[in-house]
Amino acid sequence: MIDKINAFFKKLNTPFQENDKEELSLEVACTVLLCEVMKADGTLQEEEQISLKAFIAKQFQLQNNQIDEIVNTALTLSDNATDFYQFTRKVNEHYTIEQRMEIVGYLWRLAYIDGELATLEEHIIRKIADLLHLRHSEYIQTKLANTPSS
């Protein structure tokens, strides 16, 4: 905890240009959003991690070592992020509405992997969908299309 606080203050004292040197990649931005939902219920299940890696591999045509690096980076960024804006901004810049809906659909699939939807998972997905500029009808459409049948 103290390390996170120290890192925060160090970043505040660093000139803006230095903070901006490392450009956030689209792959990492998407993965951070997915990790947020994975972590929302307090557990990182192996099935969720396998599904996440499969999605990233398919979405970005990456090799296993690249996927592991992106997931590790995304988890670190997720642990230190105060909001989702920097990640959703990157997705909004590069993805069409259909592609953003696909990402939100995958957020729903990740949330349901353990067989139940935690309230916090649903809240995070709603927040991300709003930041990705999905209309309410598109949000509901992605939820219905990706909710497992009982």
Rank of each mutant, 00 (worst) to 15 (best):
I97M: 12
A40Q: 01
Y139F: 15
I2S: 07
D41N: 04
F87A: 07
Y139A: 08
Q66S: 11
L120N: 09
H123K: 13
I128G: 01
Q66V: 06
E18M: 06
T76R: 07
E121G: 03
W108R: 05
N65E: 15
N65I: 14
F87W: 06
Q99V: 05
D68K: 14
I2R: 14
A7G: 11
E102P: 10
C30W: 01
I128M: 00
E47C: 05
S25I: 00
I113W: 09
L12V: 03
N19T: 07
I56W: 02
R89Q: 15
N72L: 12
L120F: 12
T73K: 14
N80I: 01
A118P: 13
E22S: 08
E116N: 15
V71K: 05
R126V: 00
L134A: 03
V91L: 14
T147A: 00
Q86A: 12
K58E: 14
D130V: 09
I128F: 02
L24P: 00
L110I: 15
K90E: 13
I67E: 02
A81G: 13
Q86E: 14
Q45E: 14
L62S: 04
L62Y: 01
I70Y: 02
D130T: 13
T76H: 10
N64W: 00
E46Q: 13
S137C: 04
A145Q: 13
A111E: 04
E102R: 13
D114Y: 03
N64I: 11
E93R: 13
L62M: 12
T88E: 08
Q66E: 15
K10E: 13
A111F: 10
F87T: 07
D83R: 08
D83K: 10
I70F: 02
N65F: 13
W108S: 09
K143I: 01
T96V: 07
L77A: 08
A129T: 03
N92Q: 10
I103S: 02
L134D: 05
L44K: 05
N80S: 13
N13A: 09
E36F: 02
L24Q: 04
